[in-house]
Each structure stands twice: as structure tokens, then as C-alpha cells.
Design a binder for these strands. Structure first.
Lengths: 218, 218
DNA sequence: ACCTGAACACCGTTCAAGT
DNA sequence: ACCTGAACACCGTTCAAGT
């Protein structure tokens, strides 16, 4: 029995095992034990199948925030959950960036961030922007890590200390010691979160200072 | 005469006109006036073709930073150039996230950011992380805007003030006034850049305070 | 040396049949 | 009501010929 849930399960499993590019109507149908065309009444199209996969991921993200915790604790919980999700399923960040967040659970996640920012004292006029900044960063970090934008590239074979003339890549030259050390991505994510929290408290402190429209309606 | 440059030009034109998904070996070959297989000696593979397109984009990004300007001026120049690039070519942000930055010009852009951060007084140990944070944000913003993650979604049809019970999406409810206004994306990008600059100066101020390894070699 | 043409193993999706 | 099979218009890439 196909059923929408079984189809989404098969697609998610396939993406986990062989990557998002291995998810095709034909491969999913094969795993479910059915002909490609039998999927269409349940998922509509390939694009809708991908949206459905994303919806499932977001559903796991929601119950993670303990309502009792402070705003910063809740944001931290959410950020950590998002990161562990994109470690378990390296394809979610790409999907999140490539398809607009239509699923209803995505609106609920956004709402939870709104509440945390309001509770932190961020002026209403700045809350949606900061929500977009935070989620853009978290998704972008996950995508960069998963797709290999972080790994190599920055640090080229010839970027080792002394192996290149100082004038060519002066920044890399001066940072040779630091760049030689391996990166602890968990620590980096943590440091980035601390920076984001600094921005939030700074925005809350600025209420009514450098802008006329401080604490708005609400 | 094909030539690598003519092939990349055709591919870029095609992506601008009909989107990245319209770029195929067959369509590019058609535009160049040649058989698909004739491209292979010049570009190697589809993936390498995409890398080549990205390389061309990065080359436009480099000469934009006036060496005379302050570190914050140079970072601003770079950020604005990156944003106008991803407005002209909505596919670059996606490509930047999906493929590791191997092109040599990408290393040069990273180096320019390293220099700016060092000049700002950011401790060496924090410079690579902050570079990744800044570029992740800028690329993520471009991708979110281009792929439609920002546009709709957050603000649902039923998120209008009073049209939903307060208990359901409390954050959206409290922000109804703000969410009803259209977003000025240029202003938002500017405000985000100001926030990033705050993080940089804050990191510079922390030198030698909460970490042992303050101003490193160099 | 450079290009072509046919072929292989794939795609998403439509449409007419089958039970 | 639900599924199948053949078909259409695509992919990237290999390989043997052509000039």
C-alpha cells in the first residue's frame, strides 16, 4: 500500500542513503514497489514530493523548544536541532534554500523565533529582519557544510606558511598558523550562535535610541 | 570557433535568460552552434562548466575593492558588489552554495576579507570563522532572495491581523502591523551589513579579554 | 586535431488501457 | 478506484567514425 507517508519515507531514506540527486520518481516508486505513475495521485509532482520531504523535517524541529526556557535557551535549542537535523540529513539545507517554505510547520518555526526575539526586547520593526538573518545564517551554515563549501577551497595546497610570496595572498600569509589547524565545526557553530545572540541583545538595547520608531504597536 | 570563453559566455547568457536549469550541454552547444560532444575538450564536464561560470562571476567581484578605502569601506564595497551580482545573475548564489569554491579568484576574495578583518583588529584566531560567517550570510541572502525563500511563506494569507486566533501564531499576531508592510530588501541588506560590522568591531574590542590567545603572530 | 552521430542509461510527465 | 505500459521530450556521457 503506497500511501503518502510511505512514499515520503521511501524518498527520505533514499536521500539519506544516496543523496538528493538519487531521488527520482522512478527510484522512489521502485522502493515502494510500484510504477512511477502510481505516485502521482499521492504526491502530485516531483516538486511537491520534495516539499513533502521538507515538511517532515520541519515537523521534527518544532517540539524541540521547551516553552519554559528563556528566549536565548529556546533559540539555542532550535539552532542545535536544526544543525543536528542537517547532519543527519545533509540534503535538508539545500532543499530549504531551493524551495520557498510553504509548509505550515515552517510558519510555526518562524513564529517561535518571532516570540523569542520579542521576548528579548527587540523592537517589533526589527524582528522579521532578524528572524530572516538568523534563519539564513543557520540554513546557510548547514548548506555550506553539507555541500563542501567550507571544507577545502579556502585553504589551498599552496597556502602553507612560507610557500607563497607574502605579496600574493597577504591575508592567508599572515594567518598561516591559524589556517594550518583543523577546524572544529561544532565550536565554530557555537561561536557564531554567541555572536548572533550579541546582535539580538544589542538590538534590544538600542530601543528608542538611533531610530524614531522604537517600541511599535503590539 | 568554440573556445572556452565563447562556451562560458553562451552558458551564462542562457542562465540569465532562462534559468540555471535551462543550461544543458545540449542547449549550450546549440547556442554555440556545435554538437554537444564538441564542448567536452573545452569544459571537461557539466560540473566543470558550472565551475567555469562561477569563476567568471568571481572575477567581476575582485577589482571592486578600492585599496585606499578603510576596512569597513572595502567590506561594504564587496558586499554591495556581491549583491548586485546576484541581482543581475540570480543563479550565482545557488551555484556558490552547491559547489565548493575551487576557482583561484575565490581564494583571492577570501584573502581580501581576511585582510579587512585583520585591519579591523579581529584576533587572528577568529578571522577565518568571521570570514565564513560573513560570506555564508551574503551568499545565503542572495540565494534566499533569488530562490523565493524570502518572498512568500513567512507571511501566510491568514496571518493578517485579527484573522487568526491569538493563541495559534502569537508572534505573527503581535507583529501583524509590521508584517503587513512590504519589505525594502535593499534597506534590509544594509541593516544586516551594519549588524555584521558591529560583530567585527565587537570581536576587535574583545582582544585579550575573554580569550588567552589574543593578537597572534603576524 | 577537431568535430559528428548513434547509442546508452537515465529523467519527469502525459495519455490510453487495463482490472 | 487504482495501477500499468508505452510513449514523448528531455538529460550527461561514451565510443566509433568521419574529415
Amino acid at each position: 500500500m503506497p500511501s503518502r507517508d510511505a512514499i515520503l519515507d521511501a524518498a527520505i531514506q533514499l536521500a539519506d542513503e544516496r543523496g538528493l540527486e538519487a531521488v527520482s520518481m522512478r527510484s522512489v516508486a521502485g522502493r515502494v514497489g510500484v510504477t512511477p505513475m502510481a505516485l502521482y495521485p499521492y504526491v502530485g509532482s516531483k516538486a511537491a514530493l520534495l516539499d513533502g520531504m521538507m515538511g517532515r523535517m520541519l515537523r521534527e524541529l518544532l517540539p524541540v523548544m521547551a516553552p519554559a526556557a528563556s528566549w536565548s535557551g529556546r533559540l539555542r535549542d532550535l539552532a542545535h536541532a536544526a544543525r543536528s537535523l542537517s547532519k543527519q540529513h545533509p540534503w535538508v539545507a539545500r532543499l530549504q534554500l531551493l524551495r520557498p517554505a510553504i509548509e505550515p510547520d515552517s510558519v510555526r518555526v518562524v513564529d517561535a523565533i518571532y516570540q523569542a526575539l520579542l521576548e528579548a526586547g527587540v523592537p517589533a520593526a526589527d524582528v522579521p529582519r532578524m528572524e530572516r538573518m538568523i534563519s539564513t545564517f543557520i540554513i546557510g551554515f548547514g548548506a555550506s557544510e553539507a555541500e563542501g563549501r567550507f571544507g577545502r577551497g579556502t585553504l589551498d595546497p599552496r597556502a602553507r606558511r612560507g610557500q607563497l610570496p607574502e605579496g600574493h595572498l597577504p591575508g592567508h600569509y599572515r594567518l598561516a598558523d591559524v589556517l594550518d589547524e583543523p577546524v572544529d565545526w561544532d565550536a565554530e557553530f557555537e561561536a557564531d550562535l554567541a555572536d548572533l545572540e550579541r546582535l539580538i541583545t544589542a538590538a534590544a538595547r538600542r530601543v528608542g535610541n538611533d531610530r524614531g520608531e522604537a517600541a511599535d504597536g503590539g
